[in-house]
Amino acid sequence: MKVSIDLDRCCGHARCYAIDSEIFQLDESGYALRSDIDVPPSAEEKARLAVTSCPERAISLH
């Protein structure tokens, strides 16, 4: 599974980081660091939760 984060839409709520701080890493200011992330099968449930938890709807699955 791949996760995409629209970095222009990310406003630093860091809800994804709260779900998994390894997968959803932040930059120095607390915004999403990477736009394309490979998610291991063991973390797919967390990735789905991150999608629905993002207030900006900046996260999507592929």
Binding site: C11, H13, L49, T52
Partner: peptide, 15 residues
Amino acid sequence: RGTSNHLAFGAGPHR
């Protein structure tokens, strides 16, 4: 409920 997509802290660039 299991989500935190609320707007208690606003949204957009002025979050």
